[in-house]
Simulated scan of single mutants.
Amino acid sequence: MKYIAFILFTVLTNAAAQLMLKQGMLSLGPISFTADTMISRVFQILFNPWVFAGLTTFAISMASHLYVLSKVELSFAYPFLSLAYVAVAVFAFFIFGEDLNNWRIAGIAFICVGTILIAQSGREGHSSDVQETAQLSKINAAASEISR
């Protein structure tokens, strides 16, 4: 549980990146590719300030996620990324006026409940890690006593 701040940072930067990417694509308008304009259109998309900021923020989010993965179990950390769906849905409602109907709210509630359950499993895992460490300390102390 001590890495929860890093996990939440990953979630928030992931959600922020999605919102920036959406803003960038809205500012560009509908995208169409033709053979003669494809390369220039790709560069126009990549270097749009909102898209560029979104991609940069997404890279920061991935770096944070890699750090988290080096510290906690994947099966604990990865489900927290679903909270980005919650953040995106709520912020998209306020920023872009997107629909937030009863079905989406129910889905958000299920995601939140699932994430809470996953978080609780991490708390149990932490206490068992503490118990294992205490047992190893006792074994090491006993081995030291025997060797004397």
Rank of each mutant, 00 (worst) to 15 (best):
M1P: 09
M1F: 09
Y3F: 14
F6D: 09
L8F: 15
T10R: 08
V11M: 01
T13R: 08
N14Q: 13
A15Q: 00
L19R: 09
L21W: 02
K22T: 12
K22N: 09
G24N: 01
M25W: 10
M25N: 12
S27N: 11
S27D: 11
L28H: 02
S32Q: 10
T34E: 09
D36S: 15
V42W: 14
V42F: 12
F43Y: 15
Q44V: 04
Q44W: 05
I45S: 00
L46Y: 09
F47Y: 15
F47E: 12
N48Q: 15
N48L: 07
P49R: 01
V51L: 04
V51S: 02
F52C: 15
F52G: 05
A53R: 06
G54I: 01
G54W: 00
L55E: 06
L55V: 08
F58K: 05
F58P: 01
F58R: 08
A59D: 06
A59K: 05
I60A: 15
S61E: 11
M62I: 13
A63D: 07
A63C: 14
L66C: 11
Y67P: 06
L69N: 10
K71Y: 08
K71H: 13
V72Y: 01
E73L: 10
E73R: 14
L74Y: 07
S75I: 10
F80G: 03
F80Y: 11
F80M: 13
S82M: 08
S82Y: 07
L83F: 03
Y85G: 00
V86R: 02
A87Y: 03
A87D: 01
A87N: 01
V88S: 02
V88K: 03
V88A: 01
V88N: 03
A89I: 07
A89G: 08
F91S: 09
F94H: 07
I95P: 03
I95G: 03
I95R: 06
F96Y: 15
F96H: 14
G97L: 11
D99E: 15
L100W: 02
L100Y: 03
L100R: 02
W103T: 12
A106V: 10
A106T: 11
G107Y: 05
I108A: 02
A109E: 00
F110M: 13
F110R: 02
F110G: 06
F110K: 03
I111N: 00
I111S: 01
C112W: 02
T115E: 05
I116M: 10
I116S: 06
L117W: 08
L117C: 10
L117E: 05
A119Q: 11
A119C: 04
A119I: 05
A119L: 08
A119T: 10
Q120E: 13
Q120D: 10
G122T: 00
G122Q: 04
E124V: 11
E124T: 12
G125F: 06
H126Q: 10
H126N: 06
S127T: 14
S127A: 13
S128T: 13
S128R: 14
T133A: 15
A134Y: 08
A134H: 09
A134I: 11
A134E: 13
Q135D: 04
K138V: 04
N140Y: 10
A142R: 13
A143K: 14
A143G: 05
S144C: 03
S144I: 07
E145L: 13
I146T: 13
I146N: 12
R148P: 05
